[in-house]
Design a protein around this nucleic acid. Structure first.
Lengths: 346, 346
DNA sequence: CTGAAAGCGCTTACAG
DNA sequence: CTGAAAGCGCTTACAG
């Protein structure tokens, strides 16, 4: 059997209360007593039962992360950011992926009830009504990349700002006929990137028509969009893909057709996935600090756990960076930072 | 306050014992009583306290996954596989990354004590002595991609078999002077891939000397190795990189030098990362079913939790697949399967 | 500063 | 089939 606080108490000739106080750093214990208790506890390899501790203290030292179906670099980065910050706060990370429908998402939330002190949520189902209904009200939660404007604490990548920055960059390079390969229609991030494209088109090149090609974030859809561009009577001078995978798909379509990037057409992406720098030419894109999104969301959650009263429901945005490589023409050296909203300090 | 079993009992006019039995599906309750209890529990939105339940039942319904620093596609796939299988078993997933040294790995293991019913471990520090010392002996554990031969249940990608298959493929295509870009010297997977290279070289082309270039799994090291190859007086006819990232780095070095792949030199990788099919030419490589590694390890762990006596300490291997694309010459259609060890059924 | 005791919310022999 | 009660391993008022 595992050894308990009673065993330590017996061995140390004190009460379990004293052991508890010594181990938890309560000040009401003699240094000498504490030292003896700690020594014996260590010798006995005592690890307090987290179940018992949680039961009485109502703290689990664990946070739950509800994430959509886990794929690719994006999620490992996100988890890395969360995990790192969680560790720094002595919090464990309970991971739960949400596939399927809203009912399943609700079930997942429920199953975490009582197991976690706080929740990090990234879910396409997360509209305000759903959250109002299903989010446990007794623990804090922070939303990530959610479409919810207010009412909940949230952290988001600055999709709109990044898109605007890229568009300004393209226009500054003399492009007017800029096509957008859009992401999935109902995807919030895709919508924000589209909105950035539209706003800048309307604002900076009002006489040029928008050209939006529907994609779905897959490389295949980028390829198809690239083929469509090639078939156009009047070809745009630049193509802005709403993510790098589509940009790469488009690039291959252009390459195969013998159309040179960037000489004959400029091409830009979004996300700065690792592949972006390896394709030829390397992709000008928008870097999104995914790990930072995770760690900042966790920081905020940890704060909310400690000080619920200080938790504001305001949405916060993480700045993104324009990464200028050579797919839109010869690159100035290095990165250009475009802080749209300054990220809050951690 | 959260509602407890007592509240439900009062509302249903039964004892807490009956509520407990009804909710847990014990057969010793009238259908009628059970129905009423369940209805009321649902109405009250009752969720049993997992802490209390764990305390008394000594089960947490949670498994812990100890993984090395979380990066890239590999880990999201691994986690995906684990998560999916865990969900199927009604198990929660507590994630803990191990960065740093053995002491930290030991601390991470300790911190999971009492929080999980079983452990999935992937760690470079996981030698037999370390595990003997630090692995909790009261719960089952399954190692993943570990160098430990026996003594612990383990699941591994078939690095050796995959490497052998690739080498046979290259030799079958007429290559004799084959260079290997090796992975990090102390990395177990890299060692296994190296071993496959060496064995086939010795076995099939005994008159040709080995040519091993040191890499570290990074694309930069692949690039450097590619440059070394180019500088060689007698150039190999094929280069086998121990992972795709290095193969891609090498490919770029070759491309820049104007050396055509596969016409002037064949190039092969290992892992089948998503990028592998996008580079030009698409990379012949070895596919590793990472998600399957995770899910099978979890299946075995779940079995070990239910039936500790049935848990064997044998290492098991997951078959890998040779993926023939065009970087080693015109490709036959599709995939060639090379089951080295048949994977156990799930 | 330390200890005896209550209690967190469950499950499960033990009676009936 | 159901209930009263013990007990899982802790923490924390309450005394002293």
């Amino acid at each position: 059997m595992a050894i308990t606080i009673k065993d330590v108490a017996r061995e140390a000739n004190v009460s379990v209360a004293t052991v508890s106080r010594a181990l938890n750093g309560l000040s009401t214990v003699t240094d000498k007593t504490r030292a003896r208790v700690m020594k014996i506890a260590a010798e006995m390899n005592f690890v307090p039962s987290s179940a018992a501790r949680s039961l009485i203290s109502r703290r689990t030292q664990t946070i739950g992360a509800l994430l959509p179906d886990l794929h690719g670099e994006f999620f490992s980065e996100l988890i890395r950011g969360i995990d790192q910050a969680a560790r720094a706060h002595g919090l464990h990370l309970l991971l739960s992926s949400i596939r399927g429908d809203a009912a399943e998402a609700a079930a997942a939330m429920k199953s975490l009830h009582g197991r976690v002190d706080g929740l990090l949520v990234m879910s396409p189902h997360a509209d305000a009504a759903f959250l109002d209904k299903n989010l446990p009200k007794d623990i804090p939660a922070v939303l990530m990349n959610s479409r919810i404007g207010g009412g909940f604490p949230s952290f988001s990548v600055d999709n709109y700002g990044g898109s605007v920055a890229m568009m300004r960059h393209l226009v500054a390079r003399g492009h007017q006929h800029i096509a957008l390969i859009a992401g999935p229609e109902h995807n919030f991030e895709a919508q924000e990137r589209l909105r950035g494209y539209r706003d800048i088109m309307a604002q900076l090149v009002p006489d040029t028509e928008e050209l939006v090609l529907q994609g779905d974030f897959s490389e295949e859809s980028g390829w198809r969009a690239g083929s469509q561009v090639l078939a156009l009577a009047q070809r745009p001078t630049a193509v802005f893909a709403a993510n790098d995978m589509m940009a790469i798909g488009c690039l291959f379509a252009l390459n195969e057709a013998g159309v040179k990037v960037p000489n004959e057409i400029a091409l830009a992406g979004f996300d700065d996935i690792p592949m972006a720098r390896f394709v030829s030419p390397p992709l000008t894109t928008v870097r999104v600090r995914i790990a930072e999104l995770g760690s900042m969301a966790l920081e905020r959650l940890a704060m909310g756990i400690e000080h619920p009263e200080r938790m504001s429901a305001s949405p916060q945005t993480l700045r993104s960076e324009l990464v200028v490589r050579s797919s839109c023409g010869r690159a100035p050296e290095g990165l250009v930072l475009v802080g749209s909203t300054k990220s809050s300090s951690s």
